[in-house]
Amino acid sequence: MVPEEENDGLLDAERHQARHTIAARAQLFPVAEKFVSLNGEGLASGRPAAFIRFAGCNMWCTYCDTRWANHPLVEVEGWSVPQLLAWVAETGVSCVTLTGGEPLLQPYLPDLVQALLSVESPRPLRVEIETNGSRDLGPMAHLREAAAEAGLPGSLHFTVDWKTPTAGEAVSAAMRRENYDVLDERDAVKFVVGSEEDLVFMERMADEAGLWDRCTVLASPVWGALEPAAIAAYLIERGLDRARLQLQLHKIIWPNESRGV
């Protein structure tokens, strides 16, 4: 069922977060699920990672494959920063993916990221934030630079969506252009494409924002809507040798699973 907050693909983030007021006041994160799997996409694709999926999103994309976690009534567990740190340590992996939903809706995300970047033993952590591109990334970018200046051992990476027309007109228009200015070679911008129109859109936006020389540009097909071969042909024909075709590994390896992968 589409939630009552839907409005042309955009959700009322404040009303959505109000569902988790008790957890927020206790400085807990509304965690929809946490698990260890392979990174299915992004620059760490194929690498085992500890995933923390937060509930709640301010968007309702047409192709969303974690819609269950975005529903206002989704069941969550409240986890504190120390509890999440302990769980990550128990997993034994050094790659942590913060996803959702929309992680940047979480008011205490900087506290969690700072703590993760401070881990030294047994290995520093590679922390990735997957964000939909509509929330202000500036504070997290400042945190990254401050952490580097302080000599924290971990590294922070951003995978930022740039919503295409297939995601919905209002969704595509909600991108914060200034977010892409804070990215560098540590980061990626992901275009989920479901048509040739989306591919043309990707090329134009990457050109206008100067993404090719700033970060990695990923083209990922809407699962079942556009064949990877069509994306490959477009990249080759247009000479887009700085873009990467990205396939969602988790959907290839575990095609019938929607959670825990």
Rank of each mutant, 00 (worst) to 15 (best):
M1T: 14
P3D: 10
E5N: 08
E14Y: 04
T21Y: 12
Q27L: 09
L28A: 15
P30W: 15
V31Q: 01
A32H: 09
F35N: 01
V36W: 05
L38S: 02
L43K: 07
A44N: 09
G46C: 10
R47M: 06
A50V: 12
F51W: 02
R53F: 15
A55S: 06
C57Q: 03
P72A: 14
V76D: 00
G78Q: 02
A86G: 12
W87M: 05
E90S: 12
E90D: 14
C95P: 00
T97G: 01
P103T: 03
L105Y: 10
P110F: 13
V113K: 02
L117F: 10
S118D: 09
P124T: 07
I129H: 01
E145P: 13
A148K: 15
F158A: 06
A167E: 06
A167S: 14
V171E: 06
R176F: 03
E178G: 04
D181E: 05
V182P: 02
G194I: 03
G194N: 01
S195V: 02
E203D: 04
D207I: 03
W212R: 07
C215Q: 00
L218A: 07
L218F: 11
W223T: 09
A229M: 13
E237K: 08
E237C: 04
R242G: 01
A243W: 12
L249T: 00
H250L: 13
H250K: 12
